[in-house]
């Protein structure tokens, strides 16, 4: 327990000092994806539902943010709220339909709905089609109190948003609600026979996960000042699965680690073009074949085997 606390404090200090050692835009992007991956993992790791369409929440929220801030000229806070609300509503509709099937069908259904949202975004007037929404001006937050033109200042805002999202997920997992979710994951029929309406719990978890993915997407649009089709594409849905998988499903910190690894890799390999996809594919294959627990899961196991309990 204390080891965990020390690691936590060390990580927090590192996070606070980071923008003086690394490129803030990179850090902010990675934090947004880390939150996105945590939101995805809330579903797969703790409810046992694999959504293969989470990009629809991440992407649509970015568009909502862009539209509210750019076309309506409103404050970025409202943009983020609009993004989160939009993602939550979309999550409620698609989730209510998708939880009618289980297992692998759930993955296929969410994937199909995400593809539908992708096509809608290609055609809808407010998304800017193939070009997306570009040049979303960064406006100061809290009515002018926090200037966001400086990347380092914005970094702390993004860090705060990330910590809020991460803390929310932590609270969900450790609440009585989270215990029921885990019971449903481990044995849905037993949970139902104990009197829990599994479908309502699953739907609520789905909506929460969608809203948090939306929070990540809107924040990313604020940081990078654009929203494009990439963020709603099936490839993005696959990417977030990969991040969670690399870090370790069902570990709360795993998706954060996974997101940093994948974003770093993409940064270094940006010049490699199509090869980024090939490498991501290879990582998928290697992890499924050999390291199903992900980095954090495998490391924890290794640590435990070195020091037997007691």
């Amino acid at each position: 327990m204390t080891a965990q606390r020390i690691t936590g404090v060390a990580l927090l200090v590192a996070a606070l000092a980071a923008p003086w050692f690394a490129y803030p835009i990179f850090l902010m992007t990675a934090l947004c994806f880390a939150l996105f991956a945590c939101a995805f993992n809330l579903l797969l790791g703790y409810v046992g539902l694999m959504s293969f369409g989470h990009a629809m929440f991440f992407g649509i929220s970015g568009y909502f943010f862009g539209h509210v801030v750019k076309a309506w000229g409103m404050a970025p806070e409202l943009g983020i709220l609009a993004g989160v609300a939009g993602a939550a509503v979309l999550g409620a509709v698609t989730g209510a339909l998708a939880i009618r099937r289980q297992g692998i069908y759930f993955a296929m259904i969410t994937l199909a709905f995400a593809q539908m949202i992708y096509f809608l975004c290609v055609q809808a007037p407010f998304t800017g089609g193939e070009d997306g929404l570009q040049g979303i001006v960064r406006k100061p937050l809290l009515g002018g109190l926090i200037p966001t033109k400086d990347d380092r200042v914005l970094y702390y805002v993004v860090l705060a948003i990330f910590l809020f999202g991460y803390g929310t997920i932590y609270r969900i997992i450790h609440s009585p609600f989270g215990q029921v979710l885990k019971a449903i994951r481990d044995n849905e029929q037993r949970a139902v026979s104990l009197g829990y309406e599994a479908d309502r719990y699953k739907l609520l978890a789905f909506v929460l996960s969608a809203a948090l993915a939306g929070l990540a997407g809107a924040t990313k649009a604020m940081v990078l000042q654009f929203a494009t089709l990439t963020d709603v594409s099936a490839a993005m849905s696959g990417e977030v699965v990969l991040m969670a998988l690399v870090g370790g499903l069902g570990t709360i910190i795993g998706p954060v680690v996974g997101a940093f690894i994948i974003i770093t890799m993409q940064n270094y390999l940006a010049a490699a073009g199509e090869f980024v996809l090939v490498i991501q594919g290879v990582i998928f294959v290697v992890i499924v074949m050999a390291f199903r627990k992900g980095l954090v899961g495998e490391l924890t196991d290794w640590w435990k085997s070195r020091r037997p309990a007691g």
Partner: peptide, 18 residues
């Protein structure tokens, strides 16, 4: 089932990327 799904998804990325 989800591992088969993920494995074949990864393979699709590799093949299409190549």
């Amino acid at each position: 089932h989800l591992y088969g799904f993920l494995l074949t998804f990864g393979l699709a990325l590799v093949i299409e990327g190549l």
